[in-house]
Every structure is written in structure tokens, then in C-alpha cells.
Design a binder for these strands. Structure first.
Lengths: 220, 220
DNA sequence: TCTGGTTCAATTATCGATAATTGAGGTAAG
DNA sequence: CTTACCTCAATTATCGATAATTGAACCAGA
């Protein structure tokens, strides 16, 4: 029995569904039937609806009146758009990173190193984890809460899309991990502006790889 | 009796509440009691909850478990953060605007002219309306749906904050409107890159005005 | 075959009632 | 006077049941 300890039922359910989408239990396009989940979790329809409502807000699922809720599909196009936007957001973040916040430069470097290790070992899960951590650390270091929120809102799409297609050949990962190391050093030298430019280029470079890599899964 | 014609109750209610927040019927910080609104609108609690859930997703209101929902207050800081982010987003948008989409260059110019007219006439409402239109047209012209969404998500905060404080002295508006005209001409000449830079500077300039203009209303 | 209508099961949207939680106010011990 | 502990009214979270809507299957007439 899966059980997350959170405040209200609806929040726990939200987490549960999110987890299932991550694990592929619910795949993009799948329909989520409220009463069905309710029965399974021994609750009523209400908390399920709320959970789905919040997930819709996160753009993880899509709901149409009287027609149900589906796990959202992220098109290659949308993936590319998100990536590009993340690029400029991270560029902005980097420029705003303050010295005092770079006390965590070692932690950042460590995350970067971890992505490299994961890339070499072809450990995709580990790569994703540390990649996410690396980028988020930078965004957080900007001390710009709104920026963090907006950035966060774009992450699920990227993750979902990465899950969906196989654009993860070794060279792409290695190049990306190498970018990370360069970016860390730019920060270490206090050249935030340059770090920002590298981050933007980093995003564009992944974008390039993606565009020239035929997606394995076709959209409907 | 206010009545919006939309599909489900919850959507209509969402629109209604949104309208009331815009009109100041519900002010920032106000608490929205579910059953109270339900009684007023002759519905049950459920659709109200859903409407509030969606508004929370839009970051118009804030909800804490068992502690209710309040109209969100946008701090000067958050306003500034949003503005800055909009700046880089619009910069990106401008770079992506395609020629064929600039068939609407006249419409864009018209919006810009309207902001100038409104500024001269000190018609704040009109200014807001055309300012919003002007900026959104550019973002839309990028043909980047994700960008439009992210940008949209930042607009309510700006509006709410503009409503809350009085940083609208004539010179600020006139300068801003003048920026608009310059931006249009950059687009007209096909120099999207330059237009993008102007847009970013435009945001920064408003930011500057805002930072050096003591907010009238203090935060709690 | 096609088009338009009809029925029906499945599902979402809404309802009215109940359980759970909070915050305010009171109260007594220290 | 303060702190910890109660009590209770107000409100949110959840429940079980019902109304509204959809989409598919079926059917009849051109």
C-alpha cells in the first residue's frame, strides 16, 4: 500500500498520482477516472477532483468539462519551447546570483561532477536527478522567488518529454555534463554574466541535439 | 445579478470571483469563505472550491489547509521580479517574431499609439488596457505557445500591483509609451533583435521608476 | 451506404450532510 | 501576569448520493 504522509487527503493523492506519472504507471495520454481512483484509494470523489485540479494547474494533466482528465502529452515542439525559455530564465538567474549565495559553489560543483559521472556510466536516472539539482541550485541562488516558481513550472514538461523519447545518446549527455563543469568555473571566478551566457548556450545546444534527433514516439 | 455564460458552474464562478478581484470588490488580503460565496450564488460548496483551486493555480489567491483562502498580496519585490522576468521573456519573444506574423505591425503600432494617447490624457485604465495588448501582441507573434502561457502567468501580478500602488506619475507613463513607439519602429524595420533589447530595457526602466518610488501601501 | 436520431451505460459536476481542524476566548495553576 | 489547557463556534475537508452530460451502440429511413 502506497502512503505518503501529508496534510490533507487531496495533497497526498496529488503526490501519489504525480509519482505514478513519473514511474510510468500513468502514461501520457492515459485517462484518469475519478471514481476509479477514489475506489482504489478508499476515498470519495472530492479529494481526487482536487488533486487533479492542482495537477491541471501544474499542466501535468488536462481536463475538459464532462469529458475527463488525461495525462498531458508534451509535444517535441513544446519541449523545445520550454527548454529555450529555461535558457533565458537561467541566464537571468545567473546574472542575479550574489556572491554570498555562492558559498554553495562547492555543492554546485559537486552536482556538476555527479552529472558527468552519471553520463559516463550511462545512468540516465542519476543524470536527470543531478541535472535537475544543478540547474535548480543556480535558479535558487538568484534569490528571485518568482523566477524559481516560473522555472519550476517548466520542469515537469521537460522531464516528461525526456521520459517519452530517447534523445539521450551518450555524446549528448557528455557534452551537457561538460557544459556544467564550465558553468561552475565561470561562477567560481565570479563571472556571473559569462555563466549566464553559457547556460543559455547550454540550453540551445541541447535544443539543437533534440531537433536533429528524430523523436522515436510519434504524436497523435 | 451577475451572470457569466460559461460551461460549468465552477468556471462561471471562477470568472465572477476574478471580476470581483479586478473591480476591487475583493481586495488583496481579503478572505474568501467558501460557504458564504456558495450561499450568495445559490450553489453548494463544491464548485466554489474548484473555482478557488483554479484561482490558486493562477496565483490569484492563496489557500492553506483548514485555514481558508485569501486574495493574494503582491509585494513590491514580487512585482519587480515579475517585471524583470517579463523583460527577458519579451526579449526572447521579439527575437522569435517572424516576418509573416508582422502583418499585424499596424495593429501593433496602433496599440502603441493608444498607450501614448492614454498617457497624455492620464487615462490609467485605457493605458493598462492598451499596454497589456501591446505587450501581449508581441509575445503572441513569437508563435511560441509556451512562452505565451508563461508570460500570461506573470501578468495578473503586475496588474494587481499596479492597482495597489500609485506608481503612475505622468512622466513614467509618457516614457513608457514612448518606448512602445520605438519598439514598433524596430519591428517595422525588421530588427527584431534590437526590438528585443528595447523591450528588456523598457522593463528595466519601469523597474527603476518603481524602485525609486516609495510604495504608498506598506505590507504586513 | 450514409445520415440523423434514440437509448443507455459510464462518467463528471453538483448537492446536502458530516467529520476534522483551527483560532478565539475563557480559565485555572504557577 | 503569564502559560498551558480547555471549550466552542466557524470553517474547511471529505463523504455518499443525485443530476447533467457525453460517447458509443443501435436503428430507421433515404
Amino acid at each position: 500500500m502506497v502512503d505518503v504522509n501529508r496534510d490533507c487527503m487531496s495533497n497526498r493523492i496529488q503526490q501519489l498520482i504525480l509519482e505514478r506519472i513519473r514511474n510510468g504507471v500513468y502514461a501520457p495520454g492515459d485517462r484518469l477516472v475519478e471514481l476509479q481512483i477514489a475506489r482504489e484509494l478508499n476515498t470519495s470523489q472530492a479529494p481526487i477532483r482536487e488533486a487533479l485540479c492542482k495537477l491541471e494547474a501544474m499542466r501535468i494533466v488536462e481536463t475538459q468539462p464532462y469529458r475527463g482528465t488525461h495525462v498531458r502529452k508534451v509535444s517535441p515542439r513544446e519541449f523545445e519551447e520550454s527548454l529555450q525559455i529555461r535558457g533565458v530564465l537561467e541566464n537571468l538567474a545567473a546574472e542575479q546570483v550574489e556572491k554570498r549565495l555562492l558559498g554553495s559553489i562547492d555543492a554546485l560543483r559537486q552536482a556538476a561532477v555527479h552529472t558527468m559521472t552519471a553520463a559516463k556510466e550511462k545512468d540516465l536516472d542519476a543524470y536527470r536527478q543531478y541535472n535537475l539539482k544543478f540547474h535548480r541550485m543556480i535558479v535558487e541562488a538568484s534569490a528571485n522567488e518568482t523566477l524559481v516558481m516560473v522555472w519550476d513550472s517548466l520542469v515537469p514538461e521537460v522531464r516528461m518529454r525526456m521520459q517519452a523519447n530517447g534523445n539521450t545518446d551518450l555524446s549528448t549527455l557528455l557534452n551537457a555534463a561538460n557544459d556544467h563543469l564550465e558553468i561552475v568555473e565561470a561562477f567560481a571566478e565570479g563571472d556571473n554574466r559569462y555563466a549566464g551566457k553559457l547556460l543559455k548556450k547550454h540550453a540551445e545546444s541541447i535544443l539543437f541535439h533534440h531537433e536533429h534527433n528524430e523523436p522515436i514516439i510519434k504524436e497523435a
